[in-house]
Amino acid sequence: MSLAPMPWPEHGGPDGGPAILHDFSTNANPLPLPEPLVNALAATDRRRYPDPHYGRLCERLAAHHGVPAHRVLPTAGSSEAIRRLTLLAHLQGLGEAWVPAPGYGDYAAAAYALGLKVHGWPAPATLLEALDRAHHPALVWLNEPCNPTGVSLPHSFWQSLAEIAWAKGHWLVLDRAYEPLRLEGRDPILPGMAARAWQLWSPNKALGLTGIRAGYVLAPTEAAEGLGQRLRALAPSWVLSAEGEQMLLAWWGEAVQAWLADSRRTLEQWRTMQRNLLSDLGWAQRATVTPFWLARPPLPARLLELRLRQLRSAGLKLRDASSFGLPGWVRVSTQSPDAQAALALVWHDSRWKGEEGEGA
Rank of each mutant, 00 (worst) to 15 (best):
A101T: 09
E144K: 14
L116E: 09
A81R: 11
L31F: 01
L61S: 08
E96H: 06
G95A: 14
H64L: 00
V99E: 01
L73Q: 11
P100F: 06
L87E: 15
A81F: 02
W121T: 00
A76Q: 11
W141E: 06
V67R: 10
L88F: 11
L94K: 05
A125Y: 13
A134W: 01
L61P: 01
L127V: 01
P124Q: 02
H53M: 12
I82W: 03
W141I: 13
R48I: 11
N39R: 15
L73M: 10
Y112K: 09
R60N: 08
P145A: 10
A125G: 09
D106F: 02
Y107K: 05
T126P: 03
G55P: 05
G115V: 15
P148Y: 07
P74E: 04
V38C: 15
A63N: 09
V38L: 15
S79T: 12
A109V: 09
I82F: 06
P122V: 10
L41G: 10
P74G: 08
L128W: 02
L87F: 15
T149S: 14
P148N: 07
L31R: 12
P145D: 12
R133P: 02
H53E: 13
G115F: 10
A40I: 07
Y104E: 06
G103V: 03
L41D: 03
A89G: 02
Y54K: 10
L57E: 05
L85E: 00
E35M: 10
E129V: 08
R133F: 13
C58I: 12
T44I: 04
A113G: 09
T86V: 09
P50Q: 13
V67W: 01
A69L: 13
P137V: 00
P124H: 08
